[in-house]
Design a protein around this nucleic acid. Structure first.
Length: 888
RNA sequence: GCUCGCUUAGCUCAGUUGGUUAGAGCGCUUCGUUGACAUCGAAGAGGUCACUAGUUCGAAUCUAGUAGCGAGUACCA
């Protein structure tokens, strides 16, 4: 066996799991030691097909694979289904860019030609991301892998669209949308990122038609839109403007005459109290325009340049960019003496997520999905706890979003994606929505809608389409739907999670998953977001290369707490690598004398154990496995790791193995048994290292994977006696070690002690563990009672097994170096116990406490007081003697 | 603006229904290789649990408010 844990075993075991098909739920389940009639399903949030694995993915895979392996080992038939997303916008951008480097304008290829390029691109990159997913040791079912553009999935998407259309939920309309001038496509509300930007508010004077010497001042952050103004609105209750309502204004530059109207939407207290109305370029103004029946005057081309044919002076500005037009308008107002003033203003500007430029509210014909009904049902499912969101903080966010949702614009002016199954007749203008193209006829000349669907439309169907829907009898759908857990980052709660809930509720009237677990964001050690430009990216692939997948998985799990970002650093990775190494070496130690053995008796829990530490470690094993199962059941990932860390490192290695060195072959089977259980418990986190170690255990056959062993449930009776007795043992050892350390006596120096005042139980514990105690505390001899009269001794109390009682340890001063040091030490001890005793007395003297606290709490406090008093008395008496000697 | 989260040891953080002397790792101090591990072991120092008020016999934990930081979100022209 290697002297230290190294990651060289990763590939070997990944191949082993593949070869044995242990990620296929049916196969693994059939081979499980104790299979249950239960299923677990987790669908991997599909990474972008051309993406590169980042820490967010690594965290996702680490958590999901851990949960899946844990379920599988618990005897549950577990599906972990992998896949990738076609990422319409992202991939189209990549391919366009790629073609451009070869000097090819993608438009010149035509739609078909371009799509072929996309498929070539994808076929090249898809294996890369899959390989990266595998490198984490991800035990997902590759035989079921899905891509959102697979033929069957496309069928499902088309079916869904047509069905939603039939139900009147999908509709086409001309509305104001978020338009990306750079991308030349519409975006959904979610794809618009609001950024704070320093800007200005321009106050413009609009002259009245009947008396140009009078004017109304309007304020705007976007003066160029005045070219499309159709009215000026004031608040109906605004006395300042009451007499203007119904009058007209001559719009400067373009010379159009527009009305002054009253509308409730205007806040008289804000700005000048008068608002210019531009229905074609502002969402609020659009609403006002609809209410008043105004024309929608579009002033921009799709590239956000001024259209030709604007009236007046603006006619000459055709083709100007929107921001140049802004300057022109302001200049012109200035020249006309109509610029009232300019104020600085911090405003939030909507920018496109992909291209980064400012999004333009733009009039356009698009396909929409009606949201109100679907959102209400989704919200109801969450409210009724049919879906539990963890951490719970996201529950409210989810509900709020569902309540304020707008119809979802699902069409995109792109080529890469699912083309919308709508057919327009060039002759009659009719529109037919159908899964297959309608037949051509002399009267009808059909052409398919050129737009594709928003990527998230197909993602929203992921739980259905990956399991075989729309075939409602598909076996996977029946067996694994609804899925158990959706694990993902909170950044896509609305993009994806909410849409899945809505879509699935709509189509199968059943939630897609019972629980949603939102993992935190991975940041660098200083809490900064990782980004290439900051140069603080910790590449998971490099970590896997350097530390091994197990270390990365364990680290991410170990740092994953709810409600706080996860700060990753190489320091942490070193720490968790050391943990794996510790287990590695513990195994090395346990198996030292077992080379070549095929004895499998250790696999069963030893029925009769004699030594206290053997009983204790089995009791702790039960406790730890119960805690572990509970932690994972509640997605407390760090708590699970901490439980294991403490149990393995402190309890098993530092205490148990050290004790077992004194009892040798008596403990041999317990050592191996507990170690085997530890490997099982660690396996979901560190599959490679544990599988390697497991296969080194005596008698384990090559085909016996840890993956199909029974996960420890901690169902045994908790041996609370062993726990309490060993606590006493630990205190004894600890107190003696402290004495040595503080008396500057070498730990290796064996000293002789007496134990006084022990009750029967404490005495039994010491007697039965005599050899272990002598070895752990390094004693030369251990006797009962007091040291021979006349020998100068120090004495100190240790809490006994008997509640509230103490035993006294007697050590001849001849064993120690310095009497004064010991006096100091005891004085410190005394003062701390005196404080405890007096605060305890105060508590119990409080009538309110004694009258109102539950009796068991009071009893506990009384026992404590008894113990503190006992210790105080004992130390006082020892001190008196020692102090007398110091003086003497 | 609204909503939510965070504030605990020098640093990074745990702390699950309110109840032992508030924990862990790193760092620091002292000491140490008995059959695994120096990626190790033992002992120790270090905290008025952000602040204020309240509920309670009892608050790091529950409530309200304040301050600082962060996130999400809104139509302020």
């Amino acid at each position: 066996m290697d002297k230290a844990y190294e990651k060289q075993h990763d590939k070997k075991w990944q191949k082993f799991w593949d070869d044995e098909r242990l990620a296929v739920p049916e196969v693994a389940h059939a081979r499980h030691a104790a299979p249950l009639e239960k299923t677990f399903a987790l669908l991997m949030p599909p990474p972008n097909v051309t993406g590169v694995l980042h820490q967010g993915h690594a965290l996702m895979l680490a958590l999901e694979d851990t949960l899946t392996r844990w379920n599988r080992m618990s005897g549950i038939e577990a599906l972990y289904l992998p896949g990738t997303d076609h990422a319409s916008i992202a991939v189209q951008m990549q391919v366009v860019k790629h073609l451009a480097t070869k000097g090819i304008d993608h438009r010149s290829l035509g739609r078909e030609g371009f799509l072929k390029e996309c498929w070539d691109w994808i076929n090249e990159y898809r294996p890369r991301i899959y390989g990266q997913v595998r490198s984490m040791g991800t035990n997902c079912d590759w035989e079921r892998v899905k891509f959102t553009m697979d033929a069957e999935l496309n069928k499902g998407v088309t079916h869904a669209f047509v069905e939603l259309y039939k139900r009147g939920l999908v509709y086409r309309a001309e509305k104001l949308v978020n338009w990306s001038p750079k991308g030349q496509t519409v975006l959904s509300d979610l794809e618009v990122i609001f950024k704070e930007q320093k800007g200005h508010i321009w106050h413009l004077k609009y002259p009245l038609a009947h008396d140009p010497s009078q004017h109304i001042v309007v304020a705007t952050t976007r003066p160029e839109t005045m070219l499309g103004d159709v009215a000026v609105a004031v608040s109906p209750s605004d006395e300042r403007y009451k007499h203007f309502v119904g009058k007209k204004i001559i719009l400067p530059i373009v010379g159009r005459e527009i009305p002054i109207i009253a509308d409730e939407f205007v806040d008289a207290a804000f700005g000048t109290g008068a608002v210019k109305i531009t229905p074609a370029h502002d969402f609020n103004d659009f609403e006002v325009g609809e209410r008043h029946g105004f024309a929608r005057l579009n002033i921009f081309t799709p590239e956000a340049k001024l259209v030709p044919n604007l009236p007046g002076k603006a006619a000459a500005w055709a083709g100007l960019d929107r921001f140049i037009a802004r300057d022109k308008v302001v200049e012109e107002f200035q020249a006309l003496g109509l610029l009232d003033r300019i104020e600085d203003h911090l405003n939030r500007v909507g920018t496109s997520e992909r291209w980064g430029e400012i999004v333009e509210p733009y009039l356009s014909h698009q396909w929409f999905l009606k949201m109100d009904g679907m959102a209400a049902r989704a919200a109801e499912a969450v409210r009724a706890k049919r879906i539990e969101i963890v951490p719970h903080e996201f529950h409210n966010q989810f509900m709020r979003w569902m309540e304020n949702i707008h119809d979802w614009c699902i069409s995109r002016q792109l080529w890469w994606g699912q083309q919308i199954p709508a057919y327009h007749c060039r002759k009659t203008g009719e529109v037919v929505v159908s899964e297959t193209p309608p037949p051509a006829s002399p009267k009808h000349d059909w052409v398919q809608d050129p737009d594709v669907l928003d990527t998230w439309f197909s993602s929203g169907l992921w739980p259905l389409t990956t399991l075989g829907w729309p075939n409602v009898k598909a076996e996977d759908l029946r067996k694994f739907y609804p899925t158990s857990v959706l694990e993902t980052g909170f950044d896509i709660l609305f993009f994806w999670v909410a849409r899945m809930v809505m879509m699935c509720m709509e189509f199968v009237d059943e939630v897609p998953f019972k629980k949603v677990y939102m993992h935190p964001m991975v940041r660098d050690e200083n809490g900064q977001k990782m980004s290439k430009s900051k140069g603080n990216v910790i590449d998971p692939l490099e970590i896997v290369e350097e530390f091994g997948a197990d270390t990365l998985r364990l680290t991410l799990n170990g740092l994953c707490v709810q409600g706080r970002d996860l700060r990753l650093s190489t320091e942490r990775l070193d720490f968790y690598r050391a943990f794996i190494n510790k287990i590695w070496n513990a195994t090395r130690f346990a198996l030292m004398k077992s080379e070549g053995s095929t004895d499998r008796t250790w696999m069963k829990r030893p029925a009769r154990v004699t030594h206290l530490h053997d009983r204790w470690i089995l009791a702790r094993l039960d406790e730890a496995s119960r805690d572990l199962n509970k932690a994972w059941g509640e997605f407390r990932m760090q708590e699970a790791v901490d439980t294991l860390y403490h149990f393995i490192w402190s309890d098993f290695c530092d205490w148990y193995l050290e004790c077992a060195k004194a009892t040798r072959e008596d403990s041999d089977n317990v050592v191996k048994h507990v170690l085997g259980e530890i490997l099982k418990m660690m396996h979901p986190l560190c599959p490679h290292a544990t599988e390697e170690l497991w296969h080194g255990m005596p008698g384990v056959k090559i085909e016996e994977s840890l993956l199909v062993q029974s996960f420890p449930q901690g169902e045994g009776f908790p041996d609370t006696e062993a726990l309490a007795e060993f606590k006493f043992f630990q205190d004894l050892v600890g107190q003696i070690r402290t004495l040595k350390a503080e008396s500057k006596v070498a730990p290796s120096k064996a000293i002789r002690i007496w134990i006084k005042d022990a009750g029967p139980l404490s005495q039994k514990v010491v007697e039965s563990s005599r050899a272990t105690l002598i070895s752990m505390a390094r004693l030369s001899d251990l006797s009962w009672g007091d040291a021979p009269a006349g020998a100068a001794c120090t004495r100190f109390p240790v809490s006994a097994v008997e509640a509230g009682k103490t035993v006294e340890i007697v050590v001849p001063m001849s064993e120690l170096k310095d009497l004064a040091d010991e006096v100091d030490r005891l004085r410190k001890e005394l003062s701390s116990f005196e404080k405890l005793a007096s605060s305890q007395e105060g508590k119990l003297a409080n009538k309110n406490f004694v009258d109102r606290a539950p009796p068991e709490v009071i009893d506990k406090e009384k026992i404590k007081l008894e113990e503190y008093r006992d210790k105080v008395a004992k130390i006082q008496s020892t001190l008196k003697q020692l102090e007398a000697q110091v003086k003497g």
